[in-house]
Design a binder for these strands. Structure first.
Length: 273
DNA sequence: CGCCCTGTTGGGGA
DNA sequence: ATCCCCAACAGGGC
């Protein structure tokens, strides 16, 4: 899935096509997508709804409806949204839901692994997401907030960055990239880092996410933009997916380990506790 | 061909 | 707070 930069890219590319449009006809084929609500009920709720704007909170895409409700979409690992000016003749592989808009354009949702979710928040997205998500990393997020969130934690700093309540939107790729840039070992106990090192992590997280957005979310091998194309500038990573290759800073062989049940790549020389 | 491992995530139970 | 498993599938290595 798309981490924050990929979701932001989807939001930006979809917004011009969807804002102000009406979801004329919505069909949902996968009951897991809307669980525990029945897909037919959600499809009926959305059919005829007018879209006010597209928002984003962490890794959630928010389809804000004119009546104050929001459809919160989480792509998880393999979800993707595809917009086309008219419906395709052949359904895209792994299609789980689709919508026809009032201008006859088409919105398809595909998801190989079926981890993604569509939930309607009748009172708006903030109510549904409150408590689950911490600050937006590219908003007014401060070093002091991160220091506070890490204080007392014995878990690895990488595990803390993946905790969406600490900061919203960081996933496995950008966590590794940010820690490499900050020269902090991913297994370092979060609460023991000096303020200086926490500040480096804070700045590196923001820089890594912004770089991902600037590269149009082209972080993932097979990521497609909502228009079906590839990101224009395939982003290069310093450590993600590069175990066994030489560190670009010091030449030491990058090492792979597992932290927080996620594959983790780091430079054992550059990144210290 | 089959088996095993890995994986862009997050919720729930221990 | 933390750790582990799990959801469901594809793709690669052996």
């Amino acid at each position: 899935m798309p981490e924050l930069p990929e979701v932001e890219t989807v939001r930006r590319r979809l917004a011009p096509h969807l804002a102000g449009r009406t979801l004329a006809e919505v069909e949902i084929f996968d009951h897991r997508l809307t669980d525990p609500e029945p897909p037919s009920a959600v499809a009926a709720r959305l059919s005829g709804a007018r879209i006010d704007a597209l928002g984003r909170r962490g890794k959630y895409l928010l389809i804000e409806l004119e009546d104050g409700a929001a459809l919160t979409v989480h792509l998880r690992m393999t979800g993707n949204l595809l917009w086309l000016p008219s419906p395709p003749e052949v359904a895209p592989p792994f299609l789980r839901a689709r919508a026809l808009l009032d201008d006859r354009s088409y919105l398809g949702y595909t998801d190989v692994r079926r981890f993604g979710t569509w939930r309607v928040a009748e009172d708006g997205a903030e109510a549904l997401l409150a408590g689950k998500l911490g600050p937006e990393p590219l908003g007014d997020w401060t070093v002091a907030e991160l220091v506070g969130a890490l204080a007392g934690r014995k878990a690895p700093v990488k595990a803390a960055l993946l905790d969406q309540r600490v900061v919203a939107g960081v996933g496995n790729i950008y966590a590794d990239e940010a820690l490499f840039a900050a020269r902090v070992h991913p297994a370092a106990p979060a609460g023991r880092l000096s303020r200086t090192r926490v500040a480096r992590v804070h700045d590196a997280v923001r820089a890594a996410l912004q770089a991902g957005i600037d590269a149009q979310g082209a972080s993932i091998r097979d990521f497609r933009t909502p228009d079906g194309g590839y990101g224009s500038a395939q982003e290069r990573f310093a450590v993600y997916g590069r175990a066994g290759e030489p560190c670009e800073r010091c030449g030491t062989t990058l090492r792979r380990t597992v932290i927080a049940q996620r594959g983790t790549v780091y430079c054992p020389h550059c990144q210290r506790f």
